[in-house]
Design a binder for these strands. Structure first.
Lengths: 221, 221
DNA sequence: AAATATTTTTAGATTTGTCTAAATTTATTT
DNA sequence: AAATAAATTTAGACAAATCTAAAAATATTT
């Protein structure tokens, strides 16, 4: 059996691994993400290593084992299906669901997850545009580009966001950007990498580079 | 904050209190229900007493404080709403949902519970016929009698069951009894208190006293 | 009412996950 | 390459929840 705390560590390692460039994840990185101390992380790494969920060498760093990766996929699947449920069925906003899904993902029952999946119509992406692993752990890859790398004159549909915190999502709500919103890049300001976009073919808005680096688009022109 | 384990104890005390006759609940009773030792229970009772969730006197027994009762109601509400969700929306059978609801009831979010309630259409009873407390903790009382106390010639609709374990519910499935089933008492065998019933005005079945004592009916004749 | 049985509590240990402070190893400067 | 800085691990302690075995309180028999 894997405890709820162990699951949290597995997820943290997976997430850091995804976002970072290096293969191995450091103790301090995990400590920071989990809001705990490096000493606690070391203790847990020894435990996870013993359970063969990670590959761990003292002082070198850590990565998920195949079994650990499977666990991470299962958690991701549960988290994203629950987020979809909360938004689609219970009318939560996309910036309100993270903390609740964080709890729901620890519920143990494969039957439950698979029935939820069916009930939602086997969605491929969650409310933030992140791919949902299927029952086999397979993820659908989407052709997407980061808004900050797009050329002036081109446009696309918002399909996802890189950051998930309330403040960022709330800001997008205020500007009028959501999953499915159409954006056309009308201007680039080289000075601070901010850009001007036309939203859904009507109003224009100025977006900081901070914002542009965290929006995924599917190009349409 | 109240921990998930504390919640389990609160629920156990509430349930024993409901089913039993005495006002005060004993340490051993709790230990048995929670599948733990009396020593562990004593430790926890001291803790719950300190948090003023129970009224506790050494060696005398224990009962819920007003705050503890509120907590129990909140847990009951969550448990029964989740059971309703699992059966109504995810097509689980009524004998499969208990263990999953046991986990789901610990999810912390009032907003979630209330939205779930709304999504389900503010149900008053769960799939086992148990009343669901509303957001204020109020319970709808239903006019029901236990099958074993009914007179020959009378009939009614099954509105609930006293026991919730898989084996009992499974047996009812096999006999063809469910919530909403119509039963007419055609015979009583004084020897062992078993009875004969006509199910939905067609086949007859013989029910043991064990079974009759755990079925609630709404009388229709 | 004394003896016995039952229930409940205490004492002391264990496990899980955490912490601080100190020691060790690895990385970076100079 | 030696010195300094940063990252990581160890040592030892703590809180929560549990356990077994023994002691104390209450209930029941005789």
């Amino acid at each position: 059996m894997i405890t709820s705390t162990e699951e949290d560590y597995i997820k943290a390692i997976f997430n850091i691994s995804q976002s970072g460039k290096r293969e191995l994840v450091g103790t301090n990185q995990i400590a920071e993400r989990m809001s705990t101390t490096a000493a606690s992380v070391t203790d847990m790494l020894r435990k996870l290593n013993h359970k063969e969920l990670i590959v761990y060498e003292k002082y070198k760093g850590v990565k998920l084992s195949p079994m650990g990766t499977m666990q991470a996929m299962s958690l991701l699947r549960k988290h994203r299906l629950w987020e979809s449920f909360l938004v689609e069925k219970l009318d939560f906003a996309w910036d309100e669901v993270h903390d609740i899904a964080e709890q729901l993902e620890h519920i143990q029952s494969n039957d439950l997850v698979n029935r939820l999946d069916k009930y939602l119509g086997y969605p491929k992406f969650d409310p933030h545009g992140d791919p949902i692993p299927d029952a086999q752990g397979t993820i659908t890859i989407r052709n997407q580009i980061v808004l900050s790398t797009m050329e002036v004159g081109n446009g696309g549909l918002v399909v996802g966001v890189k950051k998930h915190d309330k403040d960022f999502l709330n800001h997008l709500n205020q500007v009028g950007i959501n999953i499915g919103t159409e954006l056309e890049l009308t201007h680039k300001y080289p000075y601070d990498q901010s850009i001007k976009v036309k939203i859904d073919n009507s109003e224009e808005a100025l977006l900081s580079s901070e914002v542009c680096e965290n929006i995924y688009l599917k190009k349409i022109r």
